[in-house]
Write a protein that binds this DNA or RNA. Sequence first.
DNA 1: GCCGTTTTCGGCCCGACTGTTTTCAGTCG
Length: 585
Amino acid sequence: MTNAEVTQVLDQVADLLEFQGANAFRVRAYRNAARAVQGLSEPLARIAADENRKLTDIPGIGADLSAKLRDLLATGKLPLLEELRALYPAGALDMLRIPGLGPKKAAALYRELKIASLDQLRTACLAEQVRALKGFGAKTEAAILAGMEFAATVQPNRLYWAVADDFARQIREHFAPCQEIRQLEIAGSYRRGKETVGDLDILIDAADPTPVMDRFAEFPGLDAVLGRGDTKMSIRLATSLQIDLRIVPAESYGAALQYFTGSKEHNIVVRARAKDRGLRINEYGVFRVTDPDAKGPTAGKIVAGKTEAEVYAALGLPLFPPELREGRREFEWADSGKLPRLIELSDLRADLHMHTTESDGRSSLAEMVAAAQARGLAYIAITDHSKRVSMANGLDADRLKRQWDQIDRLNDQLKGFRVLKGVEVDILEGGPLDLDDSTLALADWVVASVHYGQNQPREQITRRIVDALSHPAVCAIAHPTGRLINIRKSYEVDLDAVYATAVRYRKFLELNASPKRLDLDDLACAAAKEHGVPIVISTDAHSTAGLDAMRFGVLQARRAGLTKDDVVNTSDWPAVLRRLGRAGG
DNA sequence: GCCGTTTTCGGCCCGACTGTTTTCAGTCG
C-alpha cells in the first residue's frame, strides 16, 4: 500500500467523522496523520516493516493510529473506515462538496430530511422543506441551490501556479491606479509557490477601504460579489476563480501577511510557539497577554505586527521564505540553525533539456541558443527526442549526428557560451534505450525518459528506469514520474530504487520546470536530496518562450528546501562533469 | 486522537462574515 493510498484512507475517515459530528480534534488528528504520511520521504510500509523503528516516531501518529496503520498495511482495510461508510449512503457525503454547506448542516439535512443524494437535496430545496429546519432559512435554502449549481459547473482542477501568476499580474495592474493603496501583496498558496492554486488572497494596506473595494467590484471578468464587509470582500470570476480581498491597517500588515500566507499547518505551529512565550498571535499582530480577562483580537500589549520579519522575530523565529511554510521541516531547521539558503533563479547557469524544430520544438537551434544567451545562461544542452517518438519526429542516429555536427560548427562561432550535444533518449517498452551505445557515447549530455508503456506494473517500469540510469551514457532521468498535473497520474515507479541507483552511479534526476509537469515534485525533490541525489532543473522548452519556465522549477525546488549546491546546473560544465565522475575539469 | 521543560489530563489557532436569531452557530480561510 502506497503512502498516497494510506493518506486517502485517513482523509476519508476524517470526512466521515466530521459528517458524524465527531470531536473536531479527533477529526484533526486524522487529517494531521494523513498529512504526516503524505509528507514522508519513504514508504510507510518500510518503516512499519523495520523492527528498529516505530510508527509513533512520526509526529502526529500515536499509539492508536500506529496500530490502525499496521492493520491497514497488513490487510489493506481499515475496520473504522468500513464501519463509518456503512452508516451513511455515499450520496449523503456529496453534500460536503457544496460551498457554504459544511458537515454540521449536511448532517442535519441527512438526519432530518433523509437526504441521500444531491438530486434529493435539490428537490427538498425546491419544495421549501429545507427552510423549515432549525438553523436554516430561506436564504440558506437559496444559497444551497446556488452552491449546487456552481458545484455542478466548476471544473474540479486547481489552477496551475503559472496561470495564477497571470491573474496575480492582472490584479496588481487593476489596483495600480488606486491612490489609497499603500501596500499590496497576494498571499496564500500562490505566495508559497504551490504547484496549483485554488483561489487568490489579496492583502491591502489602504487609507480608506471603500474605494479599494469599489475598485475590486470592477475587476475584469467578475461574475459575482460573494460577500463584502468592512475589512473583507470576496468575488468570483466567470472562470470560477475566487479572489478574496482583505484590508488591514499598516501596523498589522506584517501579521496579516504572515497569517494569510499560511499554510494552515505552518500557522498552527506558529501559534503554539507564541503561546509558549505567553504571546498571542493573530492577523492583527503579536500581543502580550497582560489581562487574561480582556477580550477582543487586539487585547493586550502589541509586540509586533508591522512586518513579517518582526512578527517572526517576536517568536524567536527567522523570516521563513514563503515556499517553506508548509509545516514540514522548517521549524526543525530553524531550531537547529540549519534553515537552508534556498536556490534562486539567478543561480542557474544552464538549461539541460530543450527541443528544436528538428523534433517537436517550434524554434530552431539558432533561435534557442540566442534566447538562452538573452536569458543570461552560460551553456545549454539540445535534447531532441529519439526516433521512437515518431509523433514528435524523433531523430535516428544519422539525423542526430548531423545535428551534432551543426552544433560543433555553432560552438566554433560562439564566445563565452557553449551548446552541449545532447538527446532525450526514450526508454523503450522492453527496457533498452532507443539509440545504440556507440551513438550515445558521442553525446555530451543524455537525458533518458519514459514516454511509452506508462501503465506497466511497478516492477517493470522501475526496472526500465533503473537500468537506464545505470547506462554509462545517461546523465539524468527526465520527468521521472511522468505525471501531468490535473491530467495524468505518475507512473507506478519505485522512487526509492531510483534514488539508490542514482547515488550508486553518480547520476542526476530532473526537476522538469514545465508548469504542467513539475516532476519531480517538491516532496520527491526533498527525498532525493535526503538520499544524496543531485537535481537538475530543466525547462523541457519546446520554444524560446518555454525557456522562461525555469522560474516555476526554481519555485518547486525552493519548496523542497534545495540550495544552489543541491542543483547541478548552477555550476559550470566542467563541474557538472566532475559530479558525474567523468574527467572534464 | 495526539501530546507533554505548567506531562498522563486537559488542552488542542483564531477571527470575519452570514444567516438566523436577539446572543449564537456554522462555515470559511
